[in-house]
Design a protein around this nucleic acid. Structure first.
Length: 343
DNA sequence: CTAGGGTTAG
């Protein structure tokens, strides 16, 4: 087939391009194609054939190994080459440090980006904010954000998400307000994070305001915003409102959306609604996970029914082959206490 | 030719 990178590779070799930089340009393109076609060994071999790799060549190689320790290895090789990274390189490598995670490598990248004067540029800054959020250092994330001279919607969203994820809901909502005041349009990221913060505070008025805002901005049709709304209303104790949002978004919601709705019922101890949704979920072809079973167990636990709680725990392990979390055991212990049983 | 952020539990 014509799009096979090996065919294009052959053509590049046949053309015998004279200029070194034009040749490198073509090879960089090819390495990208090989990675996109999931032909990793071809991509790496071709990279090694580039006579004098530039920052684009290196960034492509690192990007092809993103979220693996190999990406860090290639980054070090790049520095020894020596070639300096740019914003794109740092964005990719910081994302890798966030997902591995590797705190020490990421902190050194922060130092390097300060030396290169790109720590406050939007693309590397948002990656730094994400990195510090994932390594549970929200104050560092906020500090990076505060030093950005010309922020943008992604940097704002990143810091709001990071603060919401790290149980700093008041600060998250404060930055959400700052973002609105700065004139940046809200994004599905900023809205879902603000809803998560409001949910943690069980702040019903906040949830309602952001719900209205999401309708005005058209973000309410986003399934992640919908899920955050279901969760928000649920945490505020407004299960009926949660159900309305759930039903409106039903066609687009994934397993997480269903789990959020079941969790809302579970917090009320509404075991009938939870088990009813469980059946409907399976009829839809969705495969339940640990969150699903945690909701079911929580519902029975909150109703003081130990036998049912234990029954679903066993069902999860034996029938669905799901490894229980510490939370499932906590739920079992809680059920023992609530049912008045003695160990 | 190479770039950044999300929802369920706790």
């Amino acid at each position: 087939m014509e799009s096979d990178p090996r065919r294009i590779h052959a053509q590049v070799i046949k053309k015998n391009i004279a200029g070194a930089s034009e040749y490198r340009f073509q090879l960089n393109n090819l390495v990208t194609l090989y990675f996109k076609s999931h032909l990793l060994p071809y991509a790496v071999r071709l990279f090694q054939q580039i006579p004098s790799p530039n920052v684009v060549s290196w960034t492509t190689l690192i990007s092809g190994h993103s979220n693996t320790p190999a990406a860090l290895h290639h980054f070090v090789s790049m520095l020894r080459h020596p070639t300096l990274p740019n914003q794109r390189t740092l964005a990719i490598i910081l994302k890798t440090c966030a997902s591995l995670p590797s705190l020490s490598f990421g902190v050194q990248l922060h130092a390097l980006s300060i030396k290169l004067s790109i720590a406050t540029e939007p693309y590397s800054a948002s990656a730094l904010i994400h990195f510090y959020s994932k390594t549970q250092l929200p104050n560092n994330a906020r500090k990076v954000f505060d030093e950005i001279p010309h922020s943008d919607a992604v940097c704002f969203s990143s810091v709001i998400v990071g603060l919401a994820q790290n149980s700093k809901p008041i600060e998250a909502l404060s930055y959400f307000a700052d973002m609105r005041a700065s004139g940046f349009g809200s994004t599905d990221y900023s809205v879902s994070a603000a809803l998560r913060a409001s949910a943690e505070l069980a702040a019903l008025e906040q949830c309602k305001m952001i719900h209205s805002h999401s309708i005005v901005t058209g973000l309410d049709s986003n399934p992640i915003v919908g899920t955050a709304l279901v969760d928000g209303y649920g945490k505020c104790g407004m299960v009926n409102d949660a159900r309305l949002v759930f039903d409106e978004n039903l066609p687009t919601l994934n397993l997480i959306g269903w789990n959020a709705m079941m969790s809302s019922y579970a917090q009320q101890g509404d075991k009938e609604s939870v088990t009813e949704l469980f059946s409907k979920m399976e009829n839809q072809g969705l495969v339940p996970d640990q969150y699903t079973f945690l909701s079911i167990m929580t519902a029975f636990c909150n109703s003081g029914l130990f036998n049912d709680t234990e029954h679903w725990f066993t069902k999860m392990e034996s029938e669905y082959k799901l490894e229980p979390w510490i939370e499932h055991y906590t739920c079992l212990v809680g059920a023992i206490g609530r049912s008045g049983r003695r160990p």
